[in-house]
Design a protein around this nucleic acid. Sequence first.
DNA 1: CAGGATCCATATGGATACTG
DNA 2: CAGTATCCATATGGATCCTG
Lengths: 116, 116
Amino acid sequence: MEVKTKQQGIKVVADVLDIIGGKWRGPILSYICDKPRRFNELKSILGRITSATLSKELRYLEELRMIERVEIRTETSSAYEYRMSQHGKSIKTLIQHVVEWGLQHRRVVLEEEIIP
Amino acid sequence: MEVKTKQQGIKVVADVLDIIGGKWRGPILSYICDKPRRFNELKSILGRITSATLSKELRYLEELRMIERVEIRTETSSAYEYRMSQHGKSIKTLIQHVVEWGLQHRRVVLEEEIIP
DNA sequence: CAGGATCCATATGGATACTG
DNA sequence: CAGTATCCATATGGATCCTG
């Protein structure tokens, strides 16, 4: 698979933006990336997200094969955690590229504002 | 400038998504990237965008220092074109990274669907 | 040709309340 | 703890009409 037309490239970019875009999906992925997280753990790290929203976003990221919901059983209890899928892990590098460019962007914009 | 906390990293990512996200900003940048474009040229390439929307998006990308609006004067007429700023050009590489990851993502998701 | 002004449709995420 | 169901607020982009 490769990009043959600009139209296709644009669609591929839109796919990716759908995954890391929106208000929460980027942050959620970035926290799960570090280590598997429990539902309420994510909820408290993320701050102002509601259960309903977090639930929806997690379902969607699962559907996209970015994360997996796994049951953790002990003798006495069971719990769930969310972790990156094998494929999901690969987005970490991309996010690093995004951050790098974003920092450069800030430098440029700030400099222009300091020395107009 | 560097990222010291995850919170900062998340903000930087949000900055970038604001630039290439939304329905039109990615496509607009990608067409201007190739070569300078006129307003109505963009409008017709982009297809279903209205003047009002295109106008808003272009103003915003200018404000972000991604593109520049330049007047082209001849003896008999004047016209405007939009071109990437020096800084704006640097996003091309990032978009390539995004496309590469996006293609990999498609491969993974499609394969899983073919062989469930 | 290159837009601005105004008003409107829809999608995203939020508030609230509830369940096993 | 880990969610779901329902309803709702706001933001993004669109439709339409107008201008120099």
